[in-house]
Write a protein that binds this DNA or RNA. Structure first.
Lengths: 336, 336
DNA sequence: TTGTATGCGTTATCAT
DNA sequence: ATGATAACGCATACAA
C-alpha cells in the first residue's frame, strides 16, 4: 500500500506538503498535478487509521440496537447509516439481542474502537447505568426511543402518548365506547406511554377504562393474534381494537383474516407503524405511524452536532410526532 | 484517556511490559496485579486505533448491502454481525441503495477505513468490475447471493435452481400441470436460476412450460399481488402458483386473502422465504426457505478464514440448500 | 521476566 | 508555498 511518504518520494516534495494537498490546501499547480499523477500511478489510498490516531477522531459511530431482525430497528438504523454516511462517518452496528451483559460488553467494544459517538436503543428497563455513565464522560451519547433515568443525555423519541391519544380519539369520535388495546411488556418503556394516551383520550371524553379491554403480551406477532382473540372472545367484546406495535398489528390482522372478520363493518381496527405490510393489507390499514426515517435522521444529526462540539440545548429531548393515518379499517360503531 | 504509558508510569514498569501483559503474556504476579490496579484506577481503555496502525489489522469488516430495509438483507446482515462479533471483529455497514456509483464510492470508503475484508451483496448485473478487482488485490472479498463474472473470489449463495426445482416438483407430484411462477427483474441474478429450476422440474416430468404462466415484476409486494392477479385472470389460469421471493410472496398472499381464495382448495400456493410473516399466515404457508442465518454465518466465517490467511480451496463457491417447507397451502389439483 | 528503542502513516508546529 | 520534525498510542525485535 502506498503512503504519503511514497507520494513525497515520487514527486520530490515533502510529506508535509503532500499531506496539505490531500487536506485541501492549494499549492503550486505544477506540484498539485504531480501529486495527482503519483496518486494514480501508485494507487495511493489514504489511511484513515493513521489519520484517526493522529487526530483522535475515528469518524465512526457505534449503533447499539436490540436486533436488526425487526423492521422498527432496522428502518431506523438504515436511516442513521444514510445520514452518517453523508457526513463521512461510518456506522458500526452492534446487536445485543436484549441481553443485558451483551449491552455492557458491546459498549466497551465500541469505546475501544474509539468511536466518536454512540447511538443507543435501550430496550429493557434494567440498564447498566454504570457503563452508560462512563460513555457519557467519553463520547457523546444519543438515546433513541426512550430516556434512562439518571443518564443525562440527548434523547430522540416519538410522542407515544400523543400517538395513542390520537388513534383512540378517532375511534371515540366514531362512536366507539369499548375499545380494546393490545400492549407490550411491562418492562419496556413505550407500552406505559401508549396506555397513558389511551387513558387520556377516554378521560377527555368522559369515558371509563374497562381493564378487561387492556391486554398485554410480548409485542410479538403471535401475541397480537392471541390477544386479539382474547379480546374478541371475552364477554362484552370491544367494537374497536387498537394494537400498539407493528408486530402485534400484523399478528392481529392475520387473526382477523383468519376469522373472516370484515373491517370496518364488524370491527374497527387501528394499527401501529406503517411498514411494508401495513401498506399492502386490504382493506387499507388505519395506523399510527412512527416517523422512523425522521427518528434515525434526527438522532444521527444530533449526534453529529455533539461530535462537532456543539453542545447547544444539551441535554436535548426531541419528541417527534407520529402520523395518524386514517384509512379504511375504522368506521362508525355498528348499530346494535 | 489513559494510555499504556500512563500505566507504565503508575506501576513503575515499562510500556513494553505493560503491553505484553495486555496481550496475554504472563508476568510476575506482583506486576500483573499492579497493572490491574492501575487499569482500574486510571480507567484505562485500550486504543484499537493505535493498535490497528501498528499491526495493520483493523479487525473491522465492511458489509456492503443494497439496503437494510428488506428482511432478506437485514437477516443475513444480522447473522454476519453476530458471527463477526464472536471473533472480535466489528461490522461496518454500508447501504448502496442499488445505486451503482454509490457502490464504488462506498467500497473506496471502506478501503480507506482499512477494513480487513469485505462482504458484498451485488444486486445489479451491471457492476463496477474495476473497483472490485481492486478490492481483491487489497483485502479478501466474499460475494453473497451471486457470483460476478471476471471476479475470482469466494461466493456464498443458496441453491436457487434446486430450491425452485424442489417446490415445483412437489406441485407436479400433486397433479398440477399448470403452474404459474412469479419472478423478479431480468437484471438480477437469482430470477433466472429460479426459472431454471422451474423448467427442469417440468422437463423431468415431461411437461411443457407455458410462457403465459411465467410472469416477471420487480420483486416488490405490489408486484406480487398484481402478477398473481394477472395469472389468475388470464385464460386457462394456473391451478398452482409459485412466488419466488419474500416480497412477492407476501403480496400474493394478501391478494389471495383479498379475493377470498381458499387455499389449497381453489389454488395451491408455494411461497419463498420463511420470515416472520410466512410463519403467521393461515393456512400455514408452504415455502422454500433460504437458509439466511447460515448464509450470513458461512460468509462471515469464510471471510474470517481468509483474513487469517487461510487460502484453502480459494476461490470457494458455497451453495447452501434451501429448505422445502411443505405446510398447508398446497394440495392436490381440484377435480374438474 | 523485563526494558530499550523504533516505527506504523498521518497531521501539525514551526521554520524557511 | 514548502520542508524538517515531532508526536499520536501501540507492538515488537532485540538486548539485558
Amino acid at each position: 500500500m502506498a503512503t504519503i511518504k511514497d507520494l513525497a518520494a515520487r514527486t520530490g516534495l515533502s510529506t508535509a506538503t503532500v499531506s496539505k494537498y490531500l487536506n485541501g490546501f492549494t499549492l503550486k499547480e505544477r506540484n498539485a498535478l504531480a501529486i495527482r499523477e503519483a496518486i494514480a500511478e501508485l494507487k495511493y489510498r489514504k489511511n484513515d487509521i493513521a489519520r484517526s490516531l493522529k487526530t483522535s477522531k475515528s469518524r465512526a459511530i457505534g449503533v447499539l440496537i436490540p436486533t436488526l431482525e425487526n423492521p422498527f430497528y432496522s428502518a431506523i438504523t438504515s436511516s442513521i447509516e444514510r445520514t452518517l454516511m453523508e457526513s463521512g462517518f461510518s456506522t458500526i452496528i452492534c446487536s445485543y439481542y436484549s441481553e443485558l451483559h451483551a449491552e455492557r460488553e458491546k459498549i466497551e467494544f465500541l469505546l475501544n474502537k474509539m468511536v466518536d459517538g454512540i447511538i443507543h436503543f435501550p430496550l429493557n428497563r434494567t440498564v447498566d447505568y454504570d457503563i452508560l455513565k462512563q460513555v457519557d464522560g467519553t463520547v457523546p451519547l444519543v438515546l433513541v426511543d426512550r430516556p434512562i433515568e439518571g443518564i443525562e443525555c440527548d434523547v430522540v423519541m416519538s410522542d407515544n402518548v400523543g400517538a395513542a391519544f390520537g388513534a383512540v380519539e378517532r375511534l371515540i369520535a366514531l362512536g366507539h365506547r369499548r375499545i380494546g388495546i393490545i400492549l407490550g411488556p411491562d418492562d419496556q418503556y413505550s407500552p406505559a406511554l401508549r396506555l397513558e394516551g389511551y387513558r387520556l383520550a377516554h378521560e377527555k371524553h368522559g369515558l371509563a377504562v374497562d381493564p378487561r379491554l387492556v391486554v398485554r403480551g410480548d409485542y410479538s406477532m403471535t401475541s397480537g393474534r392471541d390477544l386479539l382473540f382474547r379480546l374478541l372472545d371475552g364477554e362484552n367484546p370491544p367494537t374497536a381494537v387498537f394494537s400498539t406495535n407493528y408486530e402485534t398489528t400484523v399478528g392481529a390482522m392475520l387473526g382477523i383474516n383468519e376469522r373472516g372478520i370484515s373491517l370496518p363493518e364488524r370491527l374497527s381496527f387501528f394499527g401501529f407503524d406503517d411498514f411494508a405490510l401495513s401498506t399492502v393489507f386490504r382493506p387499507r390499514l388505519s395506523v399510527v405511524a412512527q416517523p422512523v426515517r425522521l427518528i434515525g435522521k434526527t438522532s444521527a444529526e444530533l449526534l453529529m452536532r455533539r461530535v462537532r462540539g456543539d453542545l447547544a440545548d444539551f441535554p436535548l429531548r426531541v419528541s417527534l410526532d407520529a402520523e395518524i393515518l386514517v384509512r379504511e379499517t375504522i368506521g362508525p360503531v355498528a348499530a346494535e
